[in-house]
Design a protein around this nucleic acid. Structure first.
Lengths: 337, 337
DNA sequence: CTTGGCACTCAGGAACACAGAGTGCTAGAT
DNA sequence: ATCTAGCACTCTGTGTTCCTGAGTGCCAAG
């Protein structure tokens, strides 16, 4: 039903349309790609492809344009992820190498990816719940206030100022800190609630109000950042592109953490390190855009996701190559630190 | 040369043009605002105003449009900052009240301001250099690594992982921490370099390499964040507006910390709490946009600036009211915490 | 199954006319 | 001295028409 030549025609249509942004006709197609057949033959194939829903024409007697379904087939079967050039690889390495902390890694990554793909890049902060506790610190600020600092193995630091219900001596605070660390060090964040559940009972009764306050803040910190922050960069790249859905909608989505989260997160599959591509109407919101995403993280644990958002008419092989490469480098950086 | 009526005409032109986005003609003007003169008279005044450069016509025989100079006069002499409605004030209060830490305050503020003005809001993080040290913490991670945490009176926390040149016992670290805090607590960040200058000499010689490493990181932390981060929100509001300079340029500027910094920062004057307005070509970059900004901060110290960026054709009285109100509320919040 | 030929369709651009809004100017009214 | 009314003029924006060219679908021959 779809023989090799028809697939070749589809591939050619996608490639031409992506690079020219104009509906591609049978004649130009037969010339530019050396299919060794006449335009008329190409037309027949096109008719078949249109019949199947892979391409469409904006108006009667214009060239053809790929549909979402067409792009899908192209991505799945007709294209290969394009590796980056050596120069690009070097650029990535040097750019990411200079990062000083987690914030910096994320910021650099998102900018890098935006620049590399000339699209909007989106990076999710490593999710706390999959991280482990490296250290808990209680810093007395004065006799009624302590600062809780939670450090994770990904280098992320969360802090909260806590008002205590009563004056607590520094030595008690120090003791509590020791207990907390003994209890939590190295444990997964998601296990923290169980681990601290019986903690108040194991401490002197006079400390319980203060402990309860501190623990509730600790748990709140864990919950609050449960689905983690997402940052983006490269919004300027939207200016040129034309979206079927309004530009406004896209910009709004970018500032709406929840929407972004779903766009990125819902793509996660059994093998999170695989590239996932969502094309146009496959997206839950933002029907007019495509998303190329993948997981990243230190070692074998996937911590979070990053990706690129752009118009459906996008150079998928190149974009996929860039996303994959950046994800790998970031994972390396995170593993090293 | 510019009598009261001419000024009234200019005010009317600005107001009409801002609300309709169309060049305003003499007839409509004479009707809508009850200047009690005929269109012909208005025309004479308009001719005078154009002569002086306050208004211009896009093409012969179209209505008039204010020039940058016209807006400037309007802002300086013809308009009053419009206070917010009671409902808006309540909204601000409740929205900002829920903030849990400095990051949260800034994030909420910038979103609030964007929503309130329907423009792009820009908020600069409180500058470290004007803050004071509240606490320095050294957290041993293992025998070769410590984490340096610097807490300021604005609630900002900076942290760095430090690789020590040699193994240092925990007790030594604790001692150094005590010394550092005794030395720095409550001091202005800008005075830190002098204060720690002779510190190595006052400590046992065997600790010096480690101390030197730690101090250099501490100083680096101070310097690096010297000009602070700027965040923005409300980019979606750009979608509707039309900029003389391209939309792309504006989006690029928003992601370019340095440019934003200058746009916000260079407006600072002797009295930083005053509203500053830069109109169109008065801006160093981004000629086609206007910026309404002001300082904010706890107490009488101005810590940083916040503001709004939008098209030159902007409702200045309303925008100025919103910026002023938000700045005041944020200052309150910061002072309270 | 492929190819060449042919009639058909439609978007986009050029040429044109025209209505409407707005102006500048001058002469009269206050 | 200033305001007003009238009038001729100048534009932009819009609607109409026409035309070209790219591209198609179909059919009959290779």
């Amino acid at each position: 039903m779809l023989d090799d030549r028809k697939l070749a025609v589809l591939r050619a249509i996608v490639e031409d349309y992506v690079s020219t942004n104009e509906p591609v006709g049978s004649k130009a197609l037969a010339e530019r790609h050396n299919l060794k057949v006449s335009p008329a033959t190409v037309r027949n194939d096109m008719a078949a492809l249109e019949e199947e829903g892979y391409i469409t024409q904006p108006h009667t007697s214009a060239g053809r344009v790929p549909t979402d379904k067409g792009y899908r087939l192209f991505v799945d079967r007709l294209s290969q992820v394009k590796p980056l050039s050596a120069a690009e690889r070097r650029a990535i390495e040097t750019f990411l190498a200079g990062a000083v902390d987690l914030d910096d890694v994320v910021t650099r990554t998102v900018r890098l990816l935006a620049q590399l793909t000339r699209q909007v890049a989106v990076v999710q902060y490593p999710t706390l719940t999959r991280s482990t506790v490296r250290h808990v610190e209680l810093v007395p600020l004065n006799d009624r206030r302590v600062m809780l600092v939670l450090i994770t193995n990904t280098g992320r630091v969360e802090q909260r100022v806590i008002e205590l219900p009563e004056v607590v001596e520094e030595t008690r605070i120090a003791h509590l800190r020791a207990v907390l660390n003994a209890c939590l060090d190295g444990c997964g964040l998601s296990t923290v609630p169980e681990l601290v559940a019986d903690l108040p009972e194991r401490l002197p009764v006079e400390d319980r109000p203060a402990v309860a306050t501190i623990l509730s803040v600790l748990l709140e910190t864990l919950v609050e950042r449960h689905d983690e922050k997402i940052v983006f960069a490269g919004a300027a790249n939207l200016a040129g592109a034309d979206f079927t859905t309004g530009l406004r909608d896209v910009l709004e989505a970018l500032e709406e953490q929840v929407v972004l989260m779903r766009l990125l997160g819902e793509t996660s599959t059994d093998t999170p390190s695989a590239l996932t591509v969502r094309i146009g109407s496959e997206n839950p919101y933002l029907r007019g855009t495509s998303i190329v995403a993948t997981g990243y993280g230190s070692g074998d644990k996937q911590l979070a996701r990053l990706g690129v958002l752009g118009p459906t008419r996008m150079d998928y092989p190149v974009t996929m190559g860039a996303v994959r490469a950046v994800a790998r480098y970031v994972s390396q950086i995170l593993a090293a630190s």
